[in-house]
Design a binder for these strands. Sequence first.
DNA 1: TATAAGCTTAGAGCTGACTCCAAGGTCAAT
DNA 2: ATTGACCTTGGAGTCAGCTCTAAGCTTATA
Lengths: 146, 146
Amino acid sequence: MLKISELSEQTGLSAHTLRYYEKHGLVNASNRSEAGYRFYTDSDVRRVQFVKTARNTGFSLADIGQLLSIRVDKRSHSCQDVTDITRKKLVEVNTKLAELQSMQQTLELLLESCCGGSENATHCSIMEALDAGLSREGKKEARLIK
Amino acid sequence: MLKISELSEQTGLSAHTLRYYEKHGLVNASNRSEAGYRFYTDSDVRRVQFVKTARNTGFSLADIGQLLSIRVDKRSHSCQDVTDITRKKLVEVNTKLAELQSMQQTLELLLESCCGGSENATHCSIMEALDAGLSREGKKEARLIK
DNA sequence: TATAAGCTTAGAGCTGACTCCAAGGTCAAT
DNA sequence: ATTGACCTTGGAGTCAGCTCTAAGCTTATA
Ligand SMILES: [Zn+2]
Ligand SMILES: [Zn+2]
Ligand SMILES: [Zn+2]
Ligand SMILES: [Zn+2]
């Protein structure tokens, strides 16, 4: 039976966060002391670790709520239920990834095109490119280089 | 001279957003009608388009504030000032990219490991992997495959 | 002239995941 | 018995970037 600070240490989640998760229906302490202190069982700890792992994998707290309700009653849910959630998350991740990759490419192009020197920016090709909506100077030339 | 709704049409930014940008010091209407209506000059339009382009490139509004102050007085700033901002953004983007790529890999691994079928989830390897902190079942095997 | 569409403002609300605060009760050690 | 560390709660604050509301003018069209 762990107190909240001990669970916090074990999981690396702050006590604040653990209470926050409880408020949002993700993790309860199975027991309370007479004074109302939370006491967590091993099973609670495993549940918290599940949440943490899912969180690191990118799942939202809402997703994790669904995964947890599958976890406590696996017989009433199918593998498809699980893959549906996972696939949805993968699509989101891929979408963000594409956005970020596009930004990355643009930023790299911009940096390649600018001298980065200490003279004044009246000729700066980054400023020019942003002024031109990225349409000229940069994209064209950089694609030729590639 | 464009009214705010016309500028909105031309730029694809909502009138709300344009006013929001103004409140945050990014874009002003150079003129106002007697009744207080905003009127935007061509120069204003170009400034808004600059903001939009920078936004699409991933810059925060704070970054854009800096870029704009360079833009209006290029002589007082250097190319290095510009690349400093750009490089900082690229670092941020690369960091997020790495996180998302890790999530993507994990999610793909999870999906590969699960049958996704309609039978019950008592044997689901996604649930097992999340329970095991992703440490077993997935990572090991998938790395062997690679 | 009436109606509707569009404009103005300050300010509130939204999202997600925390993060922190105040006011007070509890517990272990000195 | 008195620190001081820890625990409780409800609720507020944070971040970024919008997004919307209310109440009241203004302008264009019929
Ligand atoms: Zn230069
Ligand atoms: Zn430059
Ligand atoms: Zn299965
Ligand atoms: Zn499965």
